[in-house]
Each structure stands twice: as structure tokens, then as C-alpha cells.
């Protein structure tokens, strides 16, 4: 709908100029926190106390990064973020893989092998996207205890799979709906069964939706804080919980550069994914909200 009638008059030029100015100023405002975070993480503490937020570092130093990674204190321990970063990876990888795979199967059945009650089944699953997790925290804590999974990485994987299935099913269902049923019918006539159709026909065309789902799940689980802080033990805390603990640790001199470096470390994986695959990230965000 970008069809402004172009008139090369002065007022039109002014309008364009104002437009670009506004957009660029807005972009700078959005960038400011990231820039400040990065600048602060590269400054020695003296620079931080002497100069303003946006002052450039007198010398660029990666000391804060290395301290945040390997020796900064989070609560009682002083091993930096590295262990928690690995914890997050250990939670994210299996949880994303399992929930995406289950979502793909559900989407496949709910669109191509419709049975009586399939719609009701989908509606029941879908509500999981909306439930405020505060409602499930206490029962989940009890259940994990009974299963012997309290405070463990396995427990967190289970929680993320359970509450991720609603989204992954939604994504795959909405994608598979648009794949013509004739393809499936033809394959059935040729004698292809349930699994063969899934592996040979559906999966090969599922590239985009797999990307969308994996990115969505990765971002959600990596950025999770509520489940991590509620269910993780000392040895399974994800990076978000560790970051929050580190920033709130109030012993000794507050090292803002280390805090910011730790925040960058926690933010980098999802930022990198966003920069590399922004298109798919946006599609995941809008998948549930814009019909189509």
C-alpha cells in the first residue's frame, strides 16, 4: 500500500525529510540500550564512574567479559556464567527437539488423518498457549518431586516440552492445512502408510515451518525465567536465573561492566538467531495472531 503520489514539490521533500528523521531517531532510541550495554561491558570501572553512559571507553577491555564468563559471583558461587550457559543448552536442545517433533506429528494427524473429535482435540491442546503459568507452578513442583525430577535438568526439559506442545502443534497444524489433501490421497492409493507419508511427503516440504518452530521454541526456552527460578536446583539453573542472581548479588563493589557483559552473554544466542533468521522469527511471532 506504499503508493504515495510522488510530487516533487518542496513540501513533499520536507515531508520525506521529516519522515526519515523520525524513523532514524526512533531506530537510535531502540538501539540505545544495546549500545550502552555493549559500551559498558567494554569499559574499565573507572571509566564508568567518570564518564557518561555513552562515553567511549579509554581502553577497550574484555576483562569484564572474561570475568562474567568464568569468575563472577552469582549468589554464593563465583564461577561466572559459563556453567549456567551450558545448563541452558542442556535444557534447550532436548526440549526444542522433542516438542517440535511431537508438534509436527500432532499437526500431521490433525490435518491429514482427521478423526471424529479432532477439532475438539485441537481446541483442548490450544488452550495450553494461553494458560498463565502461575496456575501450574505449585502442582508441577509437587509432580516433579514425585517423579524424582525436582531441581534437575530433566525436570526442566519435561516442563518445557509439556507447555511447548501447544505452540508447536499450532504452528504445524496451520502449515499442514495448506498442503493439498490430494497429495496424501494419491499416496494412500499407492499403498503408502501413515509413517511413510509423514517421512516421505510431509517432512520434505516442512523446511520453513520447522525453522519457524525451532526458532520460536529456542527463543522461548532460552529466555524462560519463571520455570527456571521455580524448578531448577543449583546445578541446573539456566542462564537467565544466573544473570538475575548475579545482578542482585550485593557483596563488594558493584561491577556494572561485568553485569552488562553477563547480560550480553545471556542475550547473544537469541540475538544471533534473530539476526541470522529474522524472517522466520517474525513469522513465528505473528503465526498465532494473524490469520492466514
Amino acid at each position: 500500500m506504499a503508493n504515495m503520489v510522488r510530487r516533487h514539490t518542496t513540501s513533499a521533500r520536507l515531508w520525506r525529510g521529516g519522515l526519515y528523521t523520525l524513523l532514524i531517531v526512533a531506530a537510535l532510541v531502540y538501539l540505545l540500550p544495546l549500545v550502552v550495554m555493549l559500551l559498558t561491558s567494554l569499559k574499565p570501572l573507572d571509566d564508568i564512574r567518570a564518564g557518561g553512559l555513552l562515553s567511549l571507553p579509554s581502553t577497550i577491555s574484555f576483562e569484564a567479559w572474561s570475568k562474567a564468563w568464568s569468575s563472577a559471583c552469582t549468589g554464593m558461587r563465583c564461577n561466572g556464567m559459563s556453567g549456567y550457559f551450558l545448563n541452558s543448552i542442556a535444557i534447550v536442545v532436548p526440549a526444542v527437539a522433542i516438542s517440535s517433533f511431537v508438534g509436527a506429528l500432532n499437526g500431521y494427524v490433525l490435518t491429514k488423518w482427521r478423526f471424529r473429535g479432532a477439532n475438539l482435540c485441537f481446541a483442548l491442546l490450544l488452550f495450553g498457549c494461553f494458560v498463565p503459568f502461575q496456575v501450574v507452578l505449585m502442582p508441577m513442583a509437587r509432580t516433579l518431586g514425585w517423579l524424582g525430577l525436582a531441581s534437575s535438568t530433566g525436570g526442566l526439559v519435561l516442563v518445557h516440552v509439556v507447555y511447548g506442545i501447544a505452540f508447536t502443534t499450532l504452528f504445524f497444524r496451520n502449515y499442514y492445512v495448506s498442503i493439498p489433501d490430494e497429495m496424501i490421497a494419491a499416496a494412500k492409493l499407492d499403498g503408502a502408510g501413515f509413517w511413510r507419508i509423514f517421512w516421505r511427503i510431509l517432512l520434505p516440504v516442512s523446511g520453513p515451518i520447522i525453522t519457524v518452530t525451532v526458532i520460536w521454541q529456542f527463543t522461548q526456552i532460552w529466555n524462560d525465567f519463571l520455570f527456571g527460578v521455580s524448578f531448577a536446583g543449583f546445578d541446573s539453573q539456566p542462564v537467565t536465573v544466573a544473570l538475575n542472581n548475579m545482578v542482585n548479588t550485593s557483596t563488594g563493589v558493584k561491577e556494572y561492566n561485568v553485569d552488562m557483559a553477563a547480560a550480553m552473554i545471556a542475550a547473544l544466542p537469541t540475538l544471533v538467531v534473530y539476526v541470522l533468521a529474522g524472517k522466520y522469527f517474525v513469522r513465528g511471532l505473528t503465526a498465532g495472531s494473524v490469520k492466514g
Binding site: A26, A27, Y30, L31, L32, P33, L34, V36, M37, T40, I48, R49, G52, L53, L54, T219, W222, N223, D224, F225, T240, L243, N244, V247, Y256, D259, M260, A263, A266, A267, T270, L271, V273, Y274, V275, G278, F281, V282, L285
Partner: peptide, 30 residues
């Protein structure tokens, strides 16, 4: 640029804004 904050954890967002809004060294001081 407008959309990248959405990829961040709200914890990261909170930590950064706490730094920006901290009166002693943040925006006020700047």
C-alpha cells in the same frame, strides 16, 4: 532494529534498563 528487543529475555531487558535508569550513573547522570 525496531524488532530486535523482542528476541531478548525480559531478564536482560530488566538488567539493561535498571542500569539506564539508575539515577547515580544512568540517564539522569548523563
Amino acid at each position: 532494529v525496531y524488532l530486535y528487543p523482542m528476541a531478548l529475555s525480559l531478564i536482560v531487558t530488566g538488567v539493561v534498563w535498571r542500569w539506564l535508569l539508575n539515577p547515580g550513573l544512568g540517564i539522569q547522570a548523563m
